[in-house]
């Protein structure tokens, strides 16, 4: 084993409590992540202050804040921010409420509990394009969808979900994927609840509701906040589900920030304008990330 490369400074005095230079082990990861963090972001920032349209090469030069002022004057930006907020907010509420209720429910003893749990978490492992297409075609299609069939069976007019309730439909799909995530995390958290504490509360005469609000919910609070923050980061830039279902429409009804940037940048090729949108997305995500990192770091200090 002498052929293995010795660590630079520790080759000779290897026996004692050595001072090892472990930086060569750490640096490759740090360097690639640093490049990944800095290079594309710097490019986005640079593109956002120049005139750059792939369809119009004659248009060049420094634009200052022109792209940004175009962006802020564009009603689509505000629509897309509102849609992002609606999508993220609704899905968060749905996933946290149902995730918590399901965690309590599936923490009870009942026959076949393990299999039932597997069924509930399954949608989380389904790739987004498959989830979206299954819902779009087989569930919510206005003619051949299962919901339409059920509706006509009871004499109702089938609903054209993606035309009449586009945002609602997207929310249903995304929530279906993320409720299992919240459930999985919260179920793990609820299992660490001290059974003696529960027992004591029961003996003191706490009913199921009191148990839930005074014992279970406080115990879950940190896990819930972790769920909220992780989901927010992913939900802020929901893309695939919109890509295969509504393409941001009808009109701009389901255009969120991610879709806006994609359509301006890669469909209309206005690089400068799309990059300004990208910077907005980065700023938004960073506000959320700030809180997430703070929570995790508190956790790190607790050991």
């Amino acid at each position: 084993m002498t052929t293995l490369a010795p660590a630079p400074s520790a080759a000779l005095p290897a026996k004692t409590n050595r001072e090892v230079d472990t930086r060569p082990l750490l640096w490759p990861s740090v360097i690639v992540l640093f490049l990944w963090m800095i290079v594309p972001l710097a490019m986005t920032l640079y593109f956002s202050v120049i005139r750059y349209n792939l369809l119009n090469p004659a248009l060049t030069g420094f634009a200052g804040l022109e792209n940004y002022s175009f962006l802020f004057d564009d009603p689509t930006l505000w629509t897309s921010l509102w849609n992002t907020l609606v999508l993220v907010g609704s899905v968060l509420i749905i996933t946290v409420v149902f995730g918590t209720l399901f965690a309590v429910l599936y923490n009870q003893e009942f026959p076949g509990r393990n299999i039932a749990r597997l069924l509930v978490i399954a949608p989380f492992f389904v790739m987004p394009t498959v989830s979206a297409l299954v819902w779009k075609n087989m569930m919510m299609h206005p003619v051949y969808g299962l919901i339409a069939s059920l509706q006509s069976m009871v004499g109702l007019t089938p609903t054209d979900w993606f035309t009449d309730y586009p945002m609602f439909s997207v929310i249903v799909i995304v929530a279906w994927q993320w409720v299992p995530f919240a459930f999985l995390i919260l179920l793990t958290a609820i299992q660490s609840l001290d059974s003696e504490q529960k027992e004591a509360a029961r003996i003191d005469g706490a009913g199921p509701l009191a148990m839930f609000f005074y014992i279970t919910l406080p115990h879950l609070s940190r896990a819930i906040s972790v769920v909220i923050m992780i989901e927010t980061i992913f939900l802020l830039t929901i893309f695939a589900e919109i890509y295969v279902t509504t393409s941001g429409g009808p009109g701009t009804a389901t255009t969120n920030l991610a879709w806006l940037i994609y359509s301006v940048g890669l469909l209309q090729f206005d690089v400068g304008y799309a990059s300004a949108g990208g910077i907005i997305a980065v700023i938004l995500a960073n506000v959320v990330a700030f809180f997430l990192v703070r929570t995790v770091s508190r956790n790190l200090q607790q050991g």
């Binding site: 963090m37 490019m43 986005t44 893309f239 994609y262 799309a274 997305a281 990330a289 995790v296």
Partner: peptide, 20 residues
């Protein structure tokens, strides 16, 4: 924590430069 924070970068924020 810094490594974790690189995960917070929304992909759509760097979509255009990565594409180019």
């Amino acid at each position: 924590l810094w490594m974790l924070s690189t995960k917070m970068m929304p992909p759509v924020g760097v979509l255009i430069p990565m594409y180019l």
